[in-house]
C-alpha cells in the first residue's frame, strides 16, 4: 500500500512539474528545439532544475543498500553504447520534433480535453508494442 502511495505521489509531483514548467505545452518544447528560430531556452532550465535534485538523489542511492519502502534499487544494468541506443534515440528525436510531445507530457495532456494527445498516446503505445514484437 505504501509503495502505491509513494508511486502516486511521485507521478502527481512529476505531472505538476510538467504543468508548472510549461512542458505540457508542445509549443514551448518546439520553441526550445527551434534553435535557429525564435529560441526559447526554458526547457534547458527545466532539465537543469531537475538535474540539481536527481544528481543528489542518485548520489544518496549509491550510499544506501535499499530504498525506504522496498528491498532493492532497480537500476538499469545496461551501460553499453550500441546501435540500438543511437537508432532508438534518433527515431524518438524525429517523433519528438514532429509534434513536440515526449512520453511524459503526452500522458499529462490526456485529460485536458483535446483529442490530439489521445491519438498521439495510442500511436505511442502501438509503437512500443511493435518494438517489442520486432526487436529481440
Amino acid at each position: 500500500m505504501m509503495k502505491l502511495l509513494v508511486a502516486l505521489l511521485s507521478g502527481a509531483v512529476f505531472g505538476l512539474g510538467l504543468a508548472i514548467s510549461g512542458m505540457i505545452n508542445p509549443a514551448k518544447v518546439l520553441g526550445f528545439l527551434d534553435v535557429f528560430g525564435n529560441w526559447d531556452p526554458s526547457l534547458a532550465f527545466v532539465m537543469g532544475g531537475a538535474l540539481i535534485v536527481t544528481t543528489v538523489a542518485f548520489a544518496v542511492v549509491k550510499k544506501r543498500s535499499s530504498p525506504l519502502w522496498h528491498d532493492v534499487f532497480h537500476l538499469p544494468d545496461n551501460t553499453g553504447i550500441d546501435r540500438k541506443l543511437i537508432i532508438g534515440s534518433a527515431l524518438f528525436g524525429i517523433g519528438w520534433g514532429l509534434v513536440g510531445l515526449c512520453p511524459g507530457p503526452a500522458l499529462s495532456n490526456l485529460l485536458l480535453g483535446a483529442w490530439q494527445p489521445i491519438v498521439f498516446v495510442i500511436a505511442m503505445i502501438a509503437g512500443m508494442i511493435v518494438q517489442r514484437m520486432v526487436v529481440r
Binding site: S21, G49, I52, T54, A57
Partner: peptide
C-alpha cells in the same frame, strides 16, 4: 520551479521504492 519538482518526483520514486 517545474524542473525542481520533476527532480523531486524522481527522487521520491528512486529513494522511496527503488
Amino acid at each position: 520551479l517545474g524542473g525542481l519538482l520533476i527532480g523531486v518526483a524522481s527522487a521520491i520514486l528512486i529513494l522511496g521504492i527503488g
